[in-house]
Design a binder for these strands. Structure first.
Lengths: 205, 205
DNA sequence: TTCTGTGAACCGCTTCACAGCG
DNA sequence: CGCTGTGAAGCGGTTCACAGAA
């Protein structure tokens, strides 16, 4: 438990390794190398080894890394070796897409509740869930100790909803609205920004 | 046109400035500073000034930056000072969300075609578009010279579709499937990875 | 005075290169 | 011999600090 401080940039690459390992495992491999792992995540072999060495010695000199073992180790490091309950707020088109996408639950993120503030939607079914009123949001999230929320509400109400989520005890917010959120110290926010990704690419066109 | 090579990391911050400027403009401001701009994009003031100085001298010493002017300059640099036609491939839940989201067209990305390979979907209407057969994809993209595509097809066919897009002349792909794409030199790919963003946050929980 | 633009200093990440182990 | 783990070197991005213009 003697956790040295790991550079955030290193942490941000671990999910990439996880994804590459998943792919390698599906292709029937059981052993890989830093070179191969790097090739599948667009990272240099030296970088892969250096990153992993922050957390321990997972490889075997001469042979490489056991894929299943390394996968389980990185999962443990990232805290994704168990299922997280997640609250989805906003049941528009994007909320629908998220609720029906199997990838989240396959990676350990299970939607527990879906909330919306539109009375016309409350009570409707969405991906196996009954859409609940936002008024019950804080109470239910508190009751279940939910720590992660996905936000697909309109930009103008995102901050307000985020404030409520923080109050309810949520510690990590995946924000799909194109606005920066202001949250207290200790709360993590990641924003999904496809438009920024497009604008990044158009520079080179 | 004497383009010095700009670090990609600098380019990747320009969309953030654009977003911050948009916000500042909406709040009624006409002038800003590197400090304020940085505060709204979570970047240091020195970094903002350094980044902008790669492209020219947009500010006025003593007063700051004219928001409308800087916005137009960055738009020009990023090639988003005009509308791009975009092809959307895949009309599942995510395709629906994208087709109905107004943010893309507001930022200059107009969906021109929607393609799907599911016969049951072809001919149906989606966000003002008739869903077309994938068989017509290459032909139509070539005809219109479309350079940007958004991909919301299942992982197992992404690479195949991407290959066709490249063949059709597409130069930038926004990929929503959680798999790395292999494309020729000169083709840009950005992948939207919400699961990786979640896994990044769980590390700190 | 304020705030930009920028060389220089600094810092941290990446790469190198090799000892060491299987 | 192959490949990891890692100190050291190298490099590039960030921050500093200040000259200069409004």
């Amino acid at each position: 438990m003697a956790e040295k401080i790991i550079p955030d940039i290193v942490v941000s690459r671990l999910p990439l390794y996880l994804q590459a390992l998943e792919y390698l495992q599906k292709s029937g491999k059981t052993i890989t190398s830093s070179k191969e792992l790097g090739a599948h995540s667009d990272i240099s072999a030296a970088q892969v080894r250096k990153d992993l060495s922050f957390f321990g010695e997972f490889g075997k000199q001469g042979s490489g890394y056991d894929i299943a073992y390394l996968y389980s180790e990185i999962s443990r490091i990232l805290n994704v070796d168990h299922v997280w309950d997640v609250a989805l707020i906003g049941s528009g088109y994007l909320g629908h897409a998220i609720a029906h996408y199997p990838g989240f639950v396959e990676h350990g993120f299970r939607i527990k509740y879906v909330f919306d503030n539109n009375p016309a939607k409350i009570g409707q079914e969405l991906g196996g869930h009954i859409i609940l009123s936002s008024e019950k949001m804080v109470e239910l999230i508190k009751k279940d100790g939910i720590k992660i929320a996905m936000l697909t509400v309109p930009s103008r109400v995102v901050q307000e909803v985020a404030d409520q989520l923080v109050q309810a005890g949520v510690k990590a917010i995946l924000n799909y609205a194109p606005v920066p959120l202001i949250v207290p110290e200790g709360i993590r926010v990641e924003t999904v920004r496809p438009i920024l990704q497009l604008e990044h690419m158009t520079y080179y066109l």
